[in-house]
């Protein structure tokens, strides 16, 4: 079972991702509302997989990805964002994210994206 941290400033999105992951593949170990909180929780819980929003207060997702990858280059990060332009997706991938899921998303789309992220 893989440990998962959810990073999103929307509580309803965090809860939606938690509900989707009610399986034996992932165990949610942390849930953060912005990049700064995510860095603190990452140090405490050391998750193997992260879902990352991009537009957040205090520290945005791109800056957070960069700092998380500096701490653990094997970390698997799935960006989940409404920002649907190609340049943003490419920037996230360059910083170390391994996948990109555009909001809005269905439960099936999330599970498929997480499975692709962890199967490669």
């Amino acid at each position: 079972m893989l440990s998962l941290m959810i990073v999103d400033d929307s509580n309803i999105i965090r809860r939606k991702i938690e509900r989707c992951n009610d399986s034996d593949k992932f165990r949610v170990v942390a849930s953060a509302a912005n990049g700064a909180e995510a860095l603190d929780l990452f140090k405490q819980t050391r998750p193997q997989v992260v879902t990352m929003d991009l537009t957040m207060p205090e520290m945005d997702g791109i800056a957070c990805i960069q700092q998380l990858m500096a701490m653990d280059s094997n970390l698997r990060i799935l960006v989940i964002s409404a920002l649907s332009d190609k340049a943003t997706g490419i920037e996230a991938l360059k910083k170390g994210a391994r996948g990109f899921l555009c909001k809005p998303f269905t439960d099936d789309q999330l599970l498929e994206a997480l499975t692709e992220l962890t199967d490669d």
Binding site: D9, S10, P57, A82, L83, S84, K103
Partner: peptide, 27 residues
Amino acid sequence: FDLVGEVANTISGNARSRFGHEFMISV
């Protein structure tokens, strides 16, 4: 409150597929 903000954020963020990354959106 969370939902009404998320809907606005999603509609605006999705607009970047047409307007590009220079279409900057706030929280």
